[in-house]
Design a protein around this nucleic acid. Structure first.
Length: 405
RNA sequence: CGGGCUGUAGUGUAACGGUAGCACGAGUCCAUGGGGUGGAUUUAGUCCGAGUUCAAAUCUCGGCAGCCCGACCA
């Protein structure tokens, strides 16, 4: 990609209304654009990052047997009424009527629609277990959207749903997914701590994945020895007792919830009539679990925990490009073409009317992992290389470049 | 949803109730060419609606919007 062709531009100042670091830097660098409170649009650079995150999630979901599908965002009242959630979800679900007076809602989660769809395909114990997921836009009537990408009214969610014959099978799969979650966050460059939280319907806890950050809305008590934590909630004392954790050994930190997984038991399968016939011919309700990650929130969290005073520092796995190539005064087209030929994703700052300082400042702001500079100050077979995380560049032979990246 | 604060060019920021100004950006031209380079010139704004006043960006009321704190948060 040539910088001169980029759809977005960088800004020297962030809009005054943005307080969160993730929103300030992502807007300044041209990755996202704000529409209204809690609603952001992803510009080409931002979408590249988001897609990288999504692809990591896909790989890990596929690896635990998840099959990707796409449910409708547009949902009907009947399905939601069956579980009793049409009324209770009113505060968070966008619900509206069409011109005929028929009522609809926009999806903020998909337990009911998924259970309803699964009735067509699950009828025997031979059909189980199954797991499906989607990466899809969700809507949520947030009373108070805030913190840039961290709490929005429209946001992307990866939601996985698993279906099992019994709780034991569900529990085993749940652990496999929890391990996949650890890998997902590691790969995106986040240190996520598996955290005990309330909200578990069919086990004592649900599990949250929390990343320590000052902007986080949650307070967690971290047990560093076990690399686990407990969310600070009304019943924290009891939980600690159950776990046999000593309060004085725990570290209290604010954290961002980047993932949350739940054992649902038969809460949705029973009202929706999702049953299977077991080996003895008995009709049994399917046992379910659901597993969420917000890729946009992951992106915002990465920026929160990985930046300096000059800009973003993308981990290589999620960076929009691997290399930020800068030409100063001379033409660097040949280097650009070579890198592309080698399959290296490169953003080439080919702008002729920009000063060196401006190009460097933009490179720091955008946070691409490797910076290459070509200028008249070095030999024709030389190139300057610097990592975003390092202060000092070095000059190398161009022939050595492939081995460095 | 309760409380508070704030709405001025694309962005940032000034203006006692009395001429809406500056910087960045963008356009044109010249110079420059390794950390947001220098100069000339052009462009573009008081959230919406009422009210008070000779006069409103400024005061009052209403609406809308944004942010912060709290409540809420599969």
């Amino acid at each position: 990609m040539k910088f001169s062709q980029l759809f977005s531009k960088t800004l020297k100042n962030a809009p005054a209304e943005e307080v969160a670091v993730n929103a300030q830097l992502l807007i300044r660098a041209g990755f996202i654009s704000k529409v209204m409170a809690g609603v952001y649009e992803y510009m080409p650079l931002g979408l590249r990052v988001l897609n990288n995150i999504n692809n990591i999630i896909r790989e890990e979901m596929n690896a635990v047997g998840g099959q990707e599908l796409s449910m409708s965002v547009f949902q009907d009242k009947e399905t939601w009424s069956t579980s009793g959630r049409w009324e209770s979800a009113k505060e968070v679900m966008y619900q509206f009527k069409d011109t005929n007076g028929k009522e609809y809602g926009l999806g903020f989660t998909h337990e009911e629609p998924l259970a309803a769809a699964a009735r067509h395909f699950i009828s025997s114990y031979k059909d189980l277990p199954k797991a499906v997921y989607q990466i899809q836009t969700k809507f949520r009537n947030e009373a108070r959207a805030k913190s840039g990408l961290l709490r929005g009214r429209e946001f992307l969610m990866k939601d996985l749903y698993s279906f099992h014959t019994d709780q034991k099978d569900c529990d085993e799969y749940y652990e496999k997914v929890a391990e996949a979650y650890v890998r997902i966050f590691e790969r995106t460059g986040l240190k996520a701590i598996r955290t005990f939280a309330s909200g578990g319907l069919f086990s004592k806890f649900s599990d949250e994945f929390q990343v320590v950050a000052d902007i986080g809305e949650d307070i967690i008590y971290i047990n560093e020895k076990e690399n686990r934590a407990v969310n600070k909630e009304i019943n924290t004392g009891e939980v600690l007792k159950d776990l046999n954790w000593k309060e004085e050994e725990l570290v209290e930190k604010p954290a961002i919830e980047v993932g949350n997984i739940f054992k649902l038991g038969t809460k949705f399968s029973e009202p929706l009539g999702l049953t299977y016939t077991d080996a003895t011919g008995q009709n049994m309700p399917v046992v379910m679990a659901s597993y969420g990650i917000g890729p946009g929130r992951v992106m915002g969290t990465v920026v929160e925990v990985s930046h300096d005073d000059k800009g973003i520092i993308w981990p290589e796995n999620v960076a929009p490009f691997k290399v930020h190539l800068i030409s100063l005064g001379v033409n660097a087209d040949d280097v650009y073409e070579n890198l592309k030929t080698q399959g290296v994703e490169v953003l080439y700052d080919d702008r002729e009317d920009k000063s060196a300082g401006e190009k460097f400042a933009d490179a720091d702001l955008m946070g691409i992992p490797w910076r290459l500079v070509v200028s008249g100050k070095m030999g024709p077979d030389e190139i300057e290389i610097k990592k975003r995380t390092e202060a000092k560049p070095q000059i190398i032979k161009r022939s050595e470049l492939a081995g460095m990246l």
